[in-house]
Write a protein that binds this DNA or RNA. Structure first.
Lengths: 231, 231
DNA sequence: CTAAATTGCAAACGTCGTTCGCAGTTGTGA
DNA sequence: TCACAACTGCGAACGACGTTTGCAATTTAG
């Protein structure tokens, strides 16, 4: 009797991922809202007030209902975050076609990722969660695999390279978002000799030319186009 | 009357960073605990049960007291996380001396960072917060600046390179920690042509030789030793 | 037409970080 | 010496959070 699958009137639909669950059944009244409306409201809230403002109560209130009502459409707040993520990933469409140099194409993808982070800063707080990948993210991933098709590498290496590229983009996004926000307040700088020496040196004008592009270019070529270690 | 600074008996000591606040005053009874004991208990809890288990109540209970009592030593949970972070950073001591090739030294630093992440997986959930940097982290940073002293670059470039290296190490740590935990459950893989093509190809044995080292080496040389873009 | 499935909603539960009030303890200055 | 200020521990409480539950109302399937 420990198995409750298939029981009628069950309420624990949250066992299978949200992507496989139908939005509604065929019986009862027409729902007053929709998954998409909830996700849109949540994204708007996150864009304007940050991810911390995306509470079930706040999202529900934006839709003119109560917090508990949202659980007719989602099974958890994590589900909502997954849906939000997958939806904004779709904003990068249309994805670049796999033509021309694969490195150039990948850099275009990376620039679009960075732009997405600029549009939705809360993505940084959301992508590091371990959760089921959505259909839109998978389509994006599929595009990347397509771009890398001419590269003579193992599939695993391509997976790693895409993951590393995504990660580095998020690092740049974080560096932009938190630029100059950390402080040495409360610390005696004099205890750090190399730091004071570095600061006391005349500051060079800091060329800073295409750090993003240069970094990713060297990273991707290093990961994908490097000789396979003759051995 | 809106200014309450300097008032006697004030309880809001949390305005200045934790590093500048004395552990206790000179008047009352000797405290039953100490900042360090609290931090040690919290780290032990995080190591064994994850960061989510580090609640004020749980930490207090590990010390045999109540949650509210901790606020005699810290002014917030964020303070506690800052202290935890700075304390485990100190576990990387002794920091490498700045001798020999700077790239080798930096790679040694990176390997130690990765080992630290393996010892304290909760670091991944903590480092991306925007908070005041602690004395131990600053000492580590000072070491890195010292290692990079012979590199003829602007200080800002070195700062960026260190930040990027730290970030990439965290990416590797996350990739290790969440290896194979994501799933395509609930999705129809057939809709992603390049993916099925890549999966249907015979799998190469995946050399995977020193991905960590190769990545960081190409990254650091690209960021620090690259020609300054003749223009 | 009956019964099952589904809806909206308000109230409640347990946990969380944090604040508050109070009684007890210690150092300092009159 | 002694009163007061500064400090201590602690339990109770506050507000917010994610989530569960019970119930009346609604719609469709058989």
């Amino acid at each position: 009797m420990t198995d409750a699958s298939g029981r009628s009137g069950e309420r624990d639909a949250g066992r299978q991922p949200i992507w496989a669950r139908p939005e509604r059944g065929t019986r009862g009244p027409a729902p007053a809202h929709s998954r998409d409306a909830i996700v849109v409201a949540a994204i708007a809230l996150a864009d304007t007030e940050g991810l911390a403002a995306v509470s079930m109560r706040a999202v529900a209130s934006a839709l003119g209902t109560g917090a508990g009502s949202l659980y007719r459409y989602l099974s958890s707040r994590d589900d909502l975050l997954d849906l939000m993520t997958d939806r904004v990933v779709g904003e990068m469409r249309p994805y670049p076609r796999a033509e021309g140099d694969w490195l150039d194409a990948m850099l275009l993808v990376a620039r679009r990722q960075l732009a997405l982070h600029r549009a939705h800063p809360w993505l940084l707080d959301v992508i590091h969660r371990t959760s089921g990948i959505g259909p839109e993210s998978l389509a994006w991933f599929d595009t990347c695999i397509g771009i890398l098709e001419p590269v003579p590498c193992a599939v695993t290496a391509k997976f790693e390279a895409i993951a590393m590229m995504t990660g580095v983009v998020s690092l740049f996004a974080r560096s932009e978002a938190t630029s100059g926000s950390f402080s040495f307040a409360g610390l005696d700088l004099a205890a750090y000799p190399h730091l004071v020496a570095a600061f006391s040196r005349p500051a060079a004008p800091a060329p800073r030319t295409d750090l993003f592009e240069r970094t990713l270019r060297s990273l991707l070529t290093g990961l994908l186009a490097a000789p396979p270690e003759a051995g």
